[in-house]
Simulated scan of single mutants.
Amino acid sequence: MLTDPAVRALVAAVNAGDREAFHGVLTPDATMSDDGSDRDLQQWTDREIFGAGGHMDIESESEDGRSLIVRFRNDTWGEMRTAWRFEVAENGRISRFETGQT
């Protein structure tokens, strides 16, 4: 059970392959980066998550629940150990996430 409700909802949406729930937990202007480079969120999630069977297995979370170490896998790249950091807006939705290999 992840501490932060928005992060918990995003992980559940990824693992269920639920694109609508995933976008529902994000702010309309949400942004993201992968390995330190800003990416187009829609294109990246289509390619890396929803079009490739993306799945997150949580190894650990920080005390605030907004930083995770994850074994992420998809049909394109296989499994890799990744770090994820989330910014959550006052409305409880994720406004930005950053991911990259550890």
Rank of each mutant, 00 (worst) to 15 (best):
F50V: 06
L41M: 10
M56T: 02
G17V: 00
H55F: 14
S37D: 14
R96G: 13
F97S: 08
R85I: 01
A89C: 09
F72P: 00
G53T: 10
D18W: 01
N91W: 11
E79V: 03
I69N: 09
D34K: 13
D34I: 14
H55S: 11
G53S: 13
R71S: 07
R66F: 07
G78E: 09
N74Q: 05
M56C: 12
A52I: 00
E90R: 12
G24F: 08
E63I: 06
E87K: 13
A30L: 09
A30R: 12
D29F: 15
D46R: 02
S67Q: 15
F72D: 00
G17C: 01
T102A: 15
P5H: 05
L2D: 12
A6N: 02
S62F: 11
S33E: 10
L41P: 06
R73K: 13
A89H: 09
V11P: 02
S33L: 09
W84Y: 15
M56D: 07
G78I: 08
D35E: 10
T102P: 15
E48R: 08
F97K: 06
T3Y: 09
D75G: 14
T76V: 13
M32W: 06
G17P: 02
S67W: 12
T31D: 10
A6G: 01
A16C: 02
S37H: 14
F97L: 13
N74S: 06
D40E: 11
E61A: 14
G24S: 06
V7N: 13
L10R: 13
T3G: 11
D64T: 03
D29Y: 15
R39G: 05
S60E: 09
A9T: 10
